[in-house]
Computed example of a mutant assay.
Amino acid sequence: MSGIPLTVLGAERLQAELQRLKSVERPAVINAIAEARAQGDLSENAEYDAARERQGFVEGRINELEGILSNAQIIDPTELDTADGRIVFGATVQIEDLDSGNTLTYQIVGDVEADIRNNLISISSPVARALIGKYEGDVVSVQAPAGLREYEIISIDYK
Rank of each mutant, 00 (worst) to 15 (best):
M1Y: 10
S2G: 15
S2V: 14
S2M: 13
G3V: 00
I4W: 01
L6Y: 00
T7Y: 07
T7L: 00
T7W: 03
T7G: 02
L9A: 13
L9I: 13
G10Q: 09
G10V: 04
G10N: 12
A11S: 15
R13F: 02
R13Y: 11
L14C: 08
L14T: 02
A16S: 15
A16T: 15
L21G: 03
L21R: 02
K22T: 10
S23F: 02
V24C: 11
P27A: 12
A28W: 05
V29Q: 15
V29C: 15
V29R: 14
N31T: 11
A32F: 03
I33D: 11
I33K: 09
A34G: 11
A34V: 07
A34S: 14
Q39M: 10
Q39H: 04
Q39N: 10
G40S: 15
G40M: 09
D41W: 11
D41I: 12
D41S: 13
L42A: 14
A46M: 00
A46G: 03
E47H: 05
Y48K: 14
Y48L: 15
A50W: 07
A51R: 08
A51S: 02
A51W: 01
A51H: 08
R52E: 14
R54H: 05
R54I: 00
V58F: 08
R61K: 14
I62V: 15
L65V: 06
G67K: 05
G67N: 03
I68F: 05
N71R: 13
D76N: 15
D76V: 09
T78W: 00
T78M: 05
E79F: 03
T82F: 00
T82A: 12
D84E: 12
G85W: 06
G85M: 12
R86I: 02
V88G: 05
T92R: 06
T92C: 00
V93A: 00
I95N: 07
I95V: 11
E96T: 15
D99S: 08
D99K: 11
D99N: 12
S100E: 06
S100R: 07
G101N: 09
G101Q: 07
N102W: 00
L104W: 05
T105F: 03
Q107E: 08
V109R: 03
G110T: 01
G110L: 05
V112G: 00
A114V: 04
D115R: 08
D115M: 02
R117S: 00
S122C: 04
S124C: 02
P126S: 03
A130M: 05
A130Q: 04
L131F: 03
L131H: 06
L131Q: 04
G133N: 01
Y135W: 13
G137T: 13
G137L: 13
G137E: 09
V139Y: 11
V140E: 07
V142W: 09
A144P: 09
P145I: 02
P145S: 01
A146M: 12
L148D: 07
E150S: 07
Y151G: 07
Y151D: 02
I154G: 07
S155K: 09
I156Y: 11
D157N: 10
Y158N: 13
